[in-house]
Design a protein around this nucleic acid. Structure first.
Lengths: 346, 346
DNA sequence: AATAGTAATGCAAACGTTTTCATTTTATGT
DNA sequence: ACATAAAATGAAAACGTTTGCATTACTATT
């Protein structure tokens, strides 16, 4: 008889387990969700039945009762990026240790797509949403607000956001690296940064750098403030003329580590020694930056800390359904002093 | 009245939509799943009701009917790795365009954890599973087999596996890079590889290299077959003595790009020019390898192709429930000829 | 040994959909 | 207009759980 039943169905369900263990389905359910409410020997019996039937509980059926789905959604532009990887890894690990499974979707920098993905994740009844950056469609924000879904934006901090955020303080990053260069005694300093249009990270970094320079009374000539897209090749090309000039700067601050790497290659190609002839600093501490030759002095943005903190905030938001306040956390940056910068010869 | 109902519930459900549109829930459901079966004007009315109520359908309730959950699970050791990122990105994109959402979990190289994650994903009733590599617990394999869950192992190809696999042919990779070095005229060749114990990828690569060398009658002295863990620092240390010897090799084949980078740094530190004094080749074509100075000659393993193919196989396996055959695909490797290798001076 | 109090269990309704089958509406051909 | 076929819709059962309430089984106290 029992066998018959099993044969028609695809997999064992909670009733099969209950029958085999000689208890009611309710008890099996309790055995999963409130184990202390079922007698140890019954528990054991159920356990055996579970093993025997190969039962795996069905989260869908569970979620339908308004019970927690146990998932959190993450929407990222791309996974194809070492710097996001760190963040996602940390986010996912923290989430896991809070008992969640992570649903990931990528939109390839298409914000319409991002909105669609958000809908799709909500269909799966994720209990929380993680996003990257603060640039999102109004529809995206209002859907989140309408559903009151706990959400957190990772990557950059801003004091005034529609949803919780946690990220590096890019202004601070600029300040720290600028101060480091000044402390080494440099006065003739050039900047190689990406375009700051529609790029608040870059804009904030430049802002931080210039702020510190101004306070120290160090002028940066306009022609020493270079602009380059985010690529080794471009950075190299754009900085070569600057470096081949006879009265070149003694230090260069790059908008990020990739640009810094391009600058270093430009210098080396021209026969200059980094850092003896010229100091070069980056921002970001990408994986690999520590292993360049010379290793790159840079600002660590602690993306893993960002991911971890974001997951913790999300957990709090989900469980503390009272506390619907927006939380904003700025993650402190850290100076990584390495070989590519040094003091001026006296 | 209607308002009352809405007030007690958290969100609009299909019944709210049906009421507002003056149809039965069945029709609303059909409107989503078989739109051609409902009259265009009714459809329009329902659409309006959906907008008005802010209804988002509940996949859980849907999944409960044995209907597809629309998710595929992916279990990876870590996301914290540029080379997996490529693969995952491609996998996820292909999956998306087949209408699936990807559930990701990471186990941090702990195979017991991997088994637990598999169970957890099955609780979510994923329709397919992606794994990395071929090294898994027996429990993992048998659970997959028992549930008959469509699965595919990515990363390396093997002609004899318990589940479908798609990956690079590492033996082939070894052969191709070895042939390239021989074609350049080198005869004095050294190897710097990671330990091949419990690492079939490395073992296969070495195998491929040695095979080609043997056919070309080129001997590699035992003391020129170096061993190093997977790190720039170690590779650099271990290869320095070899390079400082007066009758050093003219070419070095490294087990992967990271090791190759270490070897290059070792050479450069000793004042050697790469490739004029010594050619260095890697395997893997990691992101960044193209931008080293000199850029690294290596073997592209096309991890994006692996990810994409894996997703396509999975889709096939899921939809073609007849075809439960195990599929195995070897992805062709590609030689990336760059600056770090050159011919011998005559 | 009886009783009260507590712990363990079972019953049945509920969750939000989908789908089969029956019914009603619409279109088609004469 | 009428019969018939086809299309659209609705009613209700089903999916696999969880949970409040009712019941039964234990435990401890006298």
């Amino acid at each position: 008889m029992y066998y018959q039943i099993m044969k028609t169905k695809k997999y064992a369900d909670i009733i099969d387990v209950a029958n085999l263990a000689n208890v009611s389905p309710a008890t099996v359910s309790r055995c999963f969700n409130h184990p202390h409410k079922v007698r140890p020997d019954t528990r054991k019996r159920i356990q055996v039945a579970i093993e025997k039937t190969g039962y795996i509980r069905n989260r869908a059926a569970q979620a339908i009762h308004g019970r927690r789905s146990g998932t959190v959604g993450l929407i990222v532009p791309t996974l194809d990026n070492a710097i996001f990887s760190n963040l996602i890894q940390a986010f996912s690990e923290q989430l896991n240790s809070n008992g969640f499974t992570m649903l990931v979707a990528t939109h390839g920098y298409d914000l319409d797509r991002e909105y669609q993905l958000l809908r799709s994740l909500l269909e799966h009844r994720v209990e929380g949403i993680g996003l990257i950056g603060l640039d999102h469609k109004d529809e995206t924000y209002s859907l989140i607000e309408r559903r009151k879904t706990p959400s957190v934006a990772m990557w950059n901090y801003h004091p005034d956001t529609r949803i919780s955020c946690v990220g590096a303080d890019n202004t601070e990053a600029g300040k720290v690296i600028a101060q480091h260069i000044l402390n080494l005694g440099h006065k003739r300093i050039a900047l190689v940064f990406p375009d700051t249009f529609e790029n608040d990270r870059a804009a904030n970094r430049v802002e931080g750098v210039l702020d510190v320079m101004k306070k120290a009374d160090v002028q940066i000539p306009a022609e020493w403030h270079l602009n380059t897209p985010y690529s080794i090749k471009n950075a190299r090309e754009v900085s070569a003329p600057l470096l081949s000039s006879p009265n070149r700067p003694t230090a260069i601050i790059a908008g990020n580590d990739v640009i810094a790497q391009g600058v270093i290659y430009a210098a080396q190609s021209l026969g200059l020694n980094v850092p003896a002839d010229i100091s070069v600093a980056g921002i970001g501490d990408f994986s690999g930056s520590a292993h360049l030759l010379p290793s790159l002095t840079t600002i660590k943005l602690r993306s893993n800390k960002v991911g971890q903190t974001a997951a913790m905030i999300l957990d709090e938001l989900i469980n503390d359904s009272e506390n619907k306040n927006i939380q904003r956390v700025a993650i402190k940056v850290e100076l990584m002093k390495r070989q590519s910068t040094c003091g001026l010869p006296i």
